[in-house]
Nucleic acid binder design. Sequence first.
DNA 1: TCAATCCGTATC
DNA 2: ATACGGATTGAC
Length: 664
Amino acid sequence: MDDAPPHARPLVARVAVEVPLAHLDRPFDYAVPAAMAPEVAVGCRVAVRFAGRQVGGFVLELADSSDHDGRLLPLRRVVSSEPVLSPAVARLARGVADRYAGTLADVLRLAVPPRHARVEREPAPGGPPPEGRVDASVAARGRHAWARAGGGTTLLTRLAEGASPRAAWMTLPGDDWASALAAAAAATLSGGRGVLLCLPGRRDVALVDAALTTVLGPGRHVVLTADLGPAPRYRAFLSALRGQVRVVVGTRAAALAPVRDPGLLVVWDDGDDLLAEPRAPYCHAREVLALRAHQQGAGLLLAGHARTPETQQLVDAGWVTAMPPARAAVRAAWPLVQVTGGATSGSGRDPATGAARLPHAAFTAVRSALATGPVLLQVPRAGYRTRLACQDCRTPAVCRTCQGPLTQTGADRAPQCRWCGRPDPGWRCAACGSTRLRAPVVGEERTAEELGRAFPGVPVRRSAGESVLDQVPAEPSVVIATPGAEPRTDGGYVAALLLDTALSLARPDLRAGEECVRRWLAVAAMVRPAGAGGVLLVVGEPASVPVQALVRADPSGFAERELAHRRAARLPPATRLATVEGPGQVVRRLTDPAAVRELTGTGWPDPVDLLGPVDLGSDRARLVVRVPWASGAALVQILARLQSARSARKAEALRVVVDPVALG
DNA sequence: TCAATCCGTATC
DNA sequence: ATACGGATTGAC
């Protein structure tokens, strides 16, 4: 095929068909009718007949012969010649599917947005993008952040030279990180290569979008998020695919965007679980981009206020380089950290609701800070980690298994036991039989009310849930925000207050400590340096390891300790772990080595820990499978074979999650 | 001995 | 889902 003469036409198309069955996750050959030969292209969408049905597919390859013994069916239709699945993205998608025991079709649904014919016909924008006015001060702020990161300036130089550095960067308080990422994008672009930036939420994407516009000028990058709507999404996708823009910024699905010749792949705040895909194959943007960096020889930047154990593990392995700031830079950037435990100034609080308590020392510190500027208060989300009760008879809701208190960890999640962590989606009141739960709101609203009274004459602004503030004026005010919704303020906050840290840390979750430190560092990042009067007030246990990360201004030390702890406890990412969920009988059989050997040919890797299975009710069960890190690939292969064997027998697919983000 | 039917398996 | 091949059955 490679040296075919110019008049030769492709005879065979290798097609990835869009079917959800695991055992059909491989290419199928089709004959290319002469009439379709001019339209067919590698990467284009086609329609084919498959097992008697009309299905869609993507051309993975064109060839002049097939290894298939039987007769080939002809392609039914070339849907469009647009090569929406480049060989590089096809290979990446295959790698992601293999990494997560999923199917290529699942990954391609994330990688290629639905076609929009009208958008596809739109003429390409004429000429080069307008030469924008570059805002020198924004670029300078970005460079300033890099200058105080260890090796930051070198990183920019190497990107501009076409090298592919892999780095883990933690910001210092006050860093204009969005501008810093834009500066790295500009450097990479100046070296002639593309850039992809993945961020957890729309707010983060909007910040970087704005920074890219000022640093690169307009029209040089494109935003790619799932919530754009079909036409704008396909338009953004096509402009990256066609090379009209070389910089893409977006949320998790953008990790598979068709950026050509990428020189830099950026993940921001990889501890945010928004970066994990909630649908099969449950891939995480950090893992997708790490694989992509490896496959395509691109640079990788794992950036954030905090560092996850997963990223720390890559640092330990020497695969990415840490960028520690000089100790002097840390001292110059960090606010003064004050930890207060013990007595509270409040009185008459309802102990059952765990309402916010404000120690006297913190109260005075906030009052004095309010003389000069805004004070930030981070509170748990409304209703979050509050004890649930029956809406009708007010009987406290308890766990059916262990009688622990039920709490809600998110507005749309099932109630969960605070002691054993078990979710209880089908709760029913033991006293009156009601199924209606009441979540007393103690988080944000109650705190706002209390603080409003505590500091009369000072405006109280709230940023949470539906009404998130991007920015607040740099004037004295109490700003109450839920994690992730903290507004920015020019010059930074005079003080910030972290309440009830001991309670937050007590969450029955493997990631509780890591998650708290991540949220606290996001607050610390917005406070003025100690030299400018900035104070971070922490209400909690001074000796606890997560609180010490703040006291010592040493988030990387915390990441190291956290990873060491995971190693000692044989927890991810020091081990590889997967959950398998399905009908009780099927899942229980997976604990029988002989049965697994029969199903997969080889059986579980040795050694293996099978934890559970846990009964989830309605005849469903979940098994946790844990293997040493080195056996991860073998584990995933077994899981894929298991799915394959089941789908071949027309059995319902199991829910397999490799590296689950949350472990209750 | 051959056609009709059933069942398992592959799906190009 | 459909299509096909091989095995099974039953009538001549």
